[in-house]
Amino acid sequence: MTRDLWKHLILIFGALIVIAPFYMMISYSFKSPGEIDRGEGGFFGRQEMMVDERCVKLRDPDRDDVATAAPRFPNQTDRQIRDALVAEAVADCQMRPIVFNYTKAFTEAPLLRYLLNGVIVTASIFLIQIVVALPAAYALAKLKFWGREAVFSIVLFCLLIPVHAIALPLYIMLAKVGLTNTYAALVVPWTISVFGIFLMRQFFMTVPDDLIDAARMDGMGELAIVWRVMLPTAIPALLAFAIFSVVAHWNDYFWPRIVVTGNRDLFTPPLGLREFKGDGDGSFFGPMMATATVIVTPLIVAFLVAQRRFIEGITLSGMK
């Protein structure tokens, strides 16, 4: 038991360091700017009502506002009406820091749009990867044809090339055909997953030939065999690959940073967060951390729900 105790102590110490930035990110997303500056309020902050200065400024009454409000305040001078209106604005602009941070996260920048872009990009990348890789993997695993060895050695060679490393020539090619700042630019370089081909080939090798022969007897074409026989047998491997692919591209920052410049409509979540940071004047720590929390949460929650699958998927590259 004592031996286990020091093990726990070491592991808990590590866990504290690992969790610290997550703790801080979530905690700041709950707190008011004052609490962040002074470092008070524990984890949740005190959640006292705070006034959104910007909202008050926007509602600053001008001459017309005072005139239209005059009937509501009979027998008062303009000055008094103005003060009353400002007081109303302040009352309306009061909110809890947590509400303030999260509404700002979604209203200051089109965060929903960014999230949607993230979903569109990761989903298209994954689908195209499958459509391209599965038939090739099947042919390499189960069909005999002249040149198979050559194709497979190209696959093995391409495994050596990280796509991030050749970002510059890819960027030049995309710029030459005028595709920068499009969805295509975000997706195209990832459409071919050499790793996916390799992985699915290894998996298909284990599928018995009898299954394929039986399908041929039934008069199925090779393409139909890929989608109706091989695909269903490969669901576990495919799921692992899906997690691998989605995690990598949801979190990717380098490539979107290169091909998307300025056009906010195409921003993926990390780019949106980056822009938020660039705009920040210091008082926006809360909303920025709220944005970060919103971006990180989907994958973390999915991971906590289906841990085993996720660890399998992410460490897939280790199964070679």
């Binding site: 801080m24 967060l273 920025m288 970060a292 971006i295 973390i300």
Partner: peptide
């Protein structure tokens, strides 16, 4: 395993 899953850019800002 949490940091492996989290968007590195967001965690960098944290």
């Amino acid at each position: 395993f949490l940091p492996v899953m989290a968007t590195l850019l967001a965690m960098a800002i944290a």
